[in-house]
Nucleic acid binder design. Sequence first.
DNA 1: ATATTGTATTTTGTATACAAAATACAATAT
DNA 2: ATATTGTATTTTGTATACAAAATACAATAT
Lengths: 214, 214
Amino acid sequence: MYTKYNIMIEHTSISEPIYLRLKEMILNGELKQGEKIVQEKIAELLGVSRTPLMKALLALENEYLVKSIPRRGMYIRSWDQKEIIDIYVCREAIEGMAARLLAQAGDKTVVQQLKDCFSPFQNSDHIDIDVYTKADEKFHSLLIKLTGNEPLDKIYFFGNIHDKVIGHGLIRPPEETLDEHFKIIKAIENGDANEAEKVAREHIKKSRELLFDT
Amino acid sequence: MYTKYNIMIEHTSISEPIYLRLKEMILNGELKQGEKIVQEKIAELLGVSRTPLMKALLALENEYLVKSIPRRGMYIRSWDQKEIIDIYVCREAIEGMAARLLAQAGDKTVVQQLKDCFSPFQNSDHIDIDVYTKADEKFHSLLIKLTGNEPLDKIYFFGNIHDKVIGHGLIRPPEETLDEHFKIIKAIENGDANEAEKVAREHIKKSRELLFDT
DNA sequence: ATATTGTATTTTGTATACAAAATACAATAT
DNA sequence: ATATTGTATTTTGTATACAAAATACAATAT
């Protein structure tokens, strides 16, 4: 037990750091898929009470990372093949629309930021997979964020699940996807909304089709 | 105050009825946009404590109906013009994809259910606006639900905001939209995925453009 | 008259107590 | 040996207490 109410001044509420820690624990596998979250246990582990923990868990439930069964408890979510495909279909719709919006907006700084994600790999003969994976994640979340459409960003919580599902790797090699990324950026730069949406969608679709041999 | 723990056996938790009641209160205007939710007040009004109320409020926050400002409180959300447009853009992406999926699925019962929404109005010379509004809401939520894509349904919480925003009416007259609805259904029936997505999108887009003269 | 400060009141965020439900597991019956 | 019942233990859902932060508002200074 610790002295009440006189520590922790770095944040507005402890729910937030709890939320972040739990998310980290889920994504890096400290908490395993299907595992039950016994509230008292996790609360003690994190040195907090159940109230802010519950708040964090509800937020994670909304992001599809935690599943609650009433009166039974909260569980780390696991995804079967159908759910993963369904999530990729959502991504296809969301990212496609994002690419369209960016193409319509015609903002040079947007194009620059997207290019910056991949410039380190452009003339490199060996691409470090871990670095590229990070860049890829960055690119996809940036694509949504840069639209400035807050609701669109809010419904794009699938990015997290993505790299959890495929186990910290890539579905397809950088040689293949790097070019697709540039095609998306190019279409945005050209202000070709239809093309931007089309290639953004195909990019996601190809990965989905390769995840399982659909 | 009421006797503890021995009433209310019709549901697994009281958060749920609280959630439903609050949602109703927000949508029918009992709670006004921008209004602060003083937890103790609402909890007393509903005859519950702050704990399950908070749970309900967090769920509503995730649906964009409530906005939380840390340490300040929870407020009924209000939407400015940009947000409403952004929400319609999301709907365009989601409903467009839903129509595509249904067209690909080629399920006759799906088509029938969609037709059933509007069959009462087909040969009628006078359409009751309230009845038609209900049918319209039903159609749009059904379009998503029938895909069987749970994540897609989860991110489609904008339907609520829709009729809140426009004040329980319709943006465009039934004469205009009824035909569009049938066009969407027809494309789904024909299994024409591209056409289905296209007309579903145009349908939303037209309404968006009419909401404000964009 | 307006701005500033200080105090009282309200409200939030968190911890905790406790009843009811769920679960574990031993004792008993088949 | 397996199934069933009953009891003990664990865990959840809810209410509530209390500190700290936010707010309201009166008293004082400019």
